[in-house]
Simulated assay, not measured.
Amino acid sequence: MRWEDLDREHCSLARTLSVIGDRWTLMVLRECFLGMHRFEEFEARLGIARHVLADRLKKLAEAGVLAKHLYQERPRREEYRLTETGLDLYPVILGLVQWGDKHMAGTEGAPLLRVHKTCGKVMDGVVVCSECGEPVRARDVRVEAGPGAGEETLPRPARAS
């Protein structure tokens, strides 16, 4: 499997990685979720090369993750806002952040806390079953072939214990 061919794989993870699977793209998304919208803001916060940033923003816009909005006519300036498709990435970003808070933050603890606006409490995101509402962990899930599966993505048979 070649990196540039991920978007053609019969695997939702591979296709997702073809859009958001590099460090600069994930850092741009982090900034979007923290309220950044403008090229200069991304550039200053991330210390990213202009051409790399322009490439990542273009790719995210082409994938429908970000939408450009004009905020100034002369000179023409646009900002980047998360679309509904982009907002759907929040659980992914939250999961990565929580993993980092648990395994990479060090003794000082998490650098940022997430407060649920509804109840006002510091929270952790939890994956729950859409059908029964129970929390879900990796060992609680069995994978089966779906309608878009290809031969190379079919689950392997379970090993006998």
Rank of each mutant, 00 (worst) to 15 (best):
T16G: 01
R56D: 09
A138L: 13
K117L: 14
P75D: 05
P75R: 06
V28I: 15
G106R: 08
M104D: 12
R142I: 13
L96E: 06
P147A: 10
E4G: 06
G100R: 04
I93M: 15
I48G: 00
V122H: 03
A54K: 11
C119P: 07
V97K: 09
A158F: 09
R137V: 08
A61Y: 07
R23T: 12
H116A: 10
H103K: 10
F39R: 12
C11K: 06
G120W: 08
E78G: 01
P157T: 10
S18C: 08
H10R: 13
E4L: 06
G148N: 13
V136S: 03
R76C: 04
L17S: 02
V28N: 03
S161N: 09
E4F: 12
A61K: 12
G64S: 06
V28S: 03
G21M: 09
K121M: 13
A160M: 12
L53W: 06
R76Q: 14
E31Q: 15
K117N: 09
L96K: 00
T16W: 01
V52L: 10
R137H: 10
V92T: 12
D7N: 09
E151N: 11
D5S: 12
D7G: 07
D140A: 08
G148F: 12
D124K: 13
L82C: 04
R2M: 09
I20D: 00
V136N: 05
R81G: 05
L94Q: 15
F39G: 02
F33M: 01
L6Y: 07
L46Y: 05
V65S: 05
G64K: 03
R15W: 02
V127I: 10
K68M: 10
G125I: 00
H51D: 14
L87M: 13
R30V: 05
G95S: 14
R156G: 05
A110I: 01
P75K: 01
A138T: 10
E151G: 08
T25P: 02
